[in-house]
Structure formats: structure tokens, C-alpha cells
Design a protein around this nucleic acid. Sequence first.
DNA 1: AAGAGACGCAACCGCAAGCTG
DNA 2: TCAGCTTGCGGTTGCGTCTCT
Length: 327
Amino acid sequence: MGRQPCCDKVGLKKGPWTIEEDKKLINFILTNGHCCWRALPKLSGLLRCGKSCRLRWINYLRPDLKRGLLSEYEEQMVIDLHAQLGNRWSKIASHLPGRTDNEIKNHWNTHIKKKLRKMGIDPLTHKPLSEQEASQQAQGSKQSLVPHDEKNPKKDQEDQQTKDKQEQLQLEQDLDKNKTSISSDGFCIDEVPLLNPHEILMDISSAHHHTNDDNVNINISNFTSSSSSSTSSSCISSLLPGDEFSKFLDEMEILDLKWLSTDDSPGENIGKDGKFNNNVDTMNLWDINDLSSLDLFMNNHDDDFVGNGDGCSRMVLDQDSWTFDLL
DNA sequence: AAGAGACGCAACCGCAAGCTG
DNA sequence: TCAGCTTGCGGTTGCGTCTCT
């Protein structure tokens, strides 16, 4: 008996997502969360399989995604992590907030591999290429440089699993040894400077200043500039000019969040006791570049975070699902 | 200017792990 | 323990765009 298809593919749409489909998916997840990807298409009225919806959301529509090319720092981190973890893209991605495994995998295959080869480093083993290998690479040889037991793939797999476990153990020990702190979301706080709350506010404040509109503080320039590297991207923001993109968000009726005041002295939002004051302003969820910061922000300070009483002042947010909780 | 090949990235596919009854 | 189901992962593909000749 053959394998069951992941979903009934009859009548299901494939290929690039349209703006309408994106709208439906975003709207549905914003209001309902994603309890079950398989059921989501039916519930949201999408003619897609659940897998496709999940992928679209995770790789493209999630509000905490960073767009654009990886920075030098991120690239180096990917190389280092790949040396330790191999092609475990999701694990690597978990160390890079706002980046997806797919994005990192693509970046690795299109940029980093070539870069390492140019530098005379084998991207598979992270060891210097021998002259012969280097010339093979130069000739575009596609042969794997890692010896695999092709006659016994099972043994190869078992070896790999043992190796994986050892690597994982080693990695954990290394991280421990280096006193590198990994936060719960996989963020390496020794290497990446943590933002203080007032610094987060600074960022939001600057976003606020991009527009003079007190109600809709969508930082269009953030969207368009960050995705400009990919002209083929079907990103909503790159498909639409700034004003239409703004209109698109309006049409989607995406809830605005009440957020801390973004007045000229953002530091003043933090009281002497370290608590946030209740001077609340409005911003769109998509202004937040790094949801992990938001997560930390909301969860850690939930008790201290008091809205102005007439709007959305509180939000429930976790790794797997998140919804707005209008009070 | 136009065609061909290279490139980059979103999306798909199949497998495996994890969960549940 | 096992079967069925869902989700997550990594490899691969398809296609739009870019660059070179």
C-alpha cells in the first residue's frame, strides 16, 4: 500500500501564494491562532493543504521574520553552527532570531558554500580543501567529499546518528565551557547584545517617526528596503507600493496594538522602579522586527504592563500560538 | 536588443519523529 | 504495543529575475 498523501490534493491550489490567500491566512491566524494545520485550510476557506499553509506562515508571513540578506555576523554564526551541527537547518535557525531554516538553507546553498570554496574551505567538512579537491571544486565537481558507505546506508545512518549525538553533546559542553548563555528561545546572549527595554522603545520610536500618523504607524520603509534584495520575491510589501501596502493592511483589518508611548524621550516610559508607565500609543504588530524581544517583553512584564483601559492593552504570546486578547 | 545560461528563492515532496487513542 | 494522524525537517524543484555575450 502506498503512502497516504498529506491531504486530499484534488482541487487544491499549488504554486505561489496570492495576496488574497495571504490575507485569508493572516486574518485567520490572527483571530484564531493555528490549532491544527490540517484543519486550517478548510476553516479559513483556503484551497491549500495544511502543510502549504504552515510553510507559508512560518517562512513568509510570520510577523517576527527578518527580511533581507543575512548580516556578516549572522553569516558567520551560520558557518560556525553548521560546522558543529551539520545540515540541521532548523537547529541553526533557532540560534538566529527572525530567520527561518529555509532561508538559512537557501543562503547556505547560494552564498556561503561558494564563499567557503573560494576561501579554500570545504563547506561540508569545514576543513581546508586539498589541492586536488580544490581543483575539483574549481571544475565544479559535484561529488560529495564526505565518505559515505553507499553499500550500507543503514550503517551509514546509524553512524550518523551516533555522530550526531556526540556532536550534540560536544556542542552542549562547548557552550557550557565557553559560558555562553543561550536563552530559552535559543538566543545567544553572550554574542548578541540584549536590548534594554528603553532601547526597544527607541527602535519603535524611530519607526513612529517614519510617519506622522498617530494611528497607523506602519514603517513602510522597513518592509520595502529589507526585502529589496529579492526582486523575485512575492512578498506582499514588495508587490505593493508603499501606499497600497498600507491600504492592504487596512483592508485586512489587522488589529493595531496599543503600545508604549513613543514620545521624544523613550527612556521616560520606564519608571524609576523599572516598571513601564501606562502611557500607551498604537503601533502595528508588523513594526516589531524581533518577536522574541516582544515575547520577552510581554511575558516578563505582563504584570507591569498596563494599558490605558480603552483598547488592546494585553497580548498573549507564546512560541506555538499567539492571539490578541482584547480587554 | 535579444537570447542563453546562471542565480536566487519560494514552494513542494517525502520521510521520520512525536503524539494519541 | 501498534496503527493512524499531525507536524517538522531537509532535500529538491520550478520559475522569475539577473547577467553576460
